[in-house]
Computed example of a mutant assay.
Amino acid sequence: MEKISYPKVWNLDKVFMGGSKSSQFSDHIKRLEALVYELEDSVKAMITPLSTNEIIKVGSFSRKHRKHSLVLIAS
């Protein structure tokens, strides 16, 4: 498998007009923070499944938060 390297410092001007000082970047960071806090709260509230009914709840949790994971990974 080929290893892909990325620079440790990104030129945010290529991604967000105005770079790290842009309102787009600020809004994006706020959105990611909100998603992380929502995910954290959901994980804290999740119980270890002990029955089939509880396993269904975990599956529902996974489907609900899958979109957040994709947003965080894509970001």
Rank of each mutant, 00 (worst) to 15 (best):
M1L: 11
E2R: 08
K3G: 00
K3V: 13
K3Y: 11
K3D: 08
I4A: 08
S5F: 10
S5C: 09
S5R: 06
Y6I: 05
Y6M: 10
P7S: 14
P7H: 11
K8N: 02
K8F: 04
K8S: 02
W10T: 07
N11Y: 04
N11P: 01
L12E: 04
L12A: 02
D13A: 15
K14T: 12
K14H: 11
K14Y: 10
K14S: 08
V15G: 00
V15Q: 05
V15D: 00
F16M: 03
F16C: 04
F16R: 01
F16S: 04
M17A: 14
M17Y: 09
M17E: 10
M17I: 06
G18Q: 06
G18S: 12
G18L: 14
G18A: 07
G18D: 08
G19V: 02
G19C: 05
G19N: 06
S20W: 04
S20D: 09
S20M: 07
S22Y: 02
S22E: 02
S22V: 05
S22W: 03
S22Q: 05
S23A: 13
S23C: 03
Q24A: 12
Q24Y: 10
F25I: 02
F25K: 01
F25S: 01
F25V: 01
S26I: 05
D27S: 06
D27W: 00
D27I: 00
D27P: 00
H28T: 09
I29T: 06
I29G: 02
K30R: 15
K30S: 15
R31F: 06
R31S: 13
L32D: 05
L32G: 06
L32M: 13
E33H: 08
E33Q: 11
A34Y: 03
A34F: 06
A34E: 03
L35H: 05
L35V: 07
V36I: 15
Y37N: 10
Y37A: 08
E38P: 01
L39E: 07
E40F: 04
D41N: 12
D41G: 07
D41I: 02
V43P: 00
V43T: 13
V43I: 15
V43C: 10
V43F: 09
V43N: 04
K44E: 09
K44V: 10
A45F: 10
M46P: 00
I47P: 00
T48Y: 08
P49M: 07
P49Q: 05
P49H: 03
L50D: 12
L50R: 14
S51E: 08
T52M: 12
N53C: 02
N53Q: 14
I55K: 11
I56C: 03
I56V: 15
K57M: 10
K57C: 00
K57S: 14
V58F: 14
V58E: 08
G59T: 06
G59M: 13
S60Y: 11
F61H: 09
F61Y: 09
F61E: 01
F61D: 01
S62Y: 12
R63S: 14
R63I: 01
R63H: 05
K64Y: 08
H65V: 03
K67E: 11
K67A: 12
K67T: 14
H68W: 02
H68G: 00
L70I: 13
V71G: 00
V71S: 09
L72S: 11
L72G: 05
I73K: 13
A74Q: 10
A74D: 15
A74T: 13
S75A: 10
S75K: 01
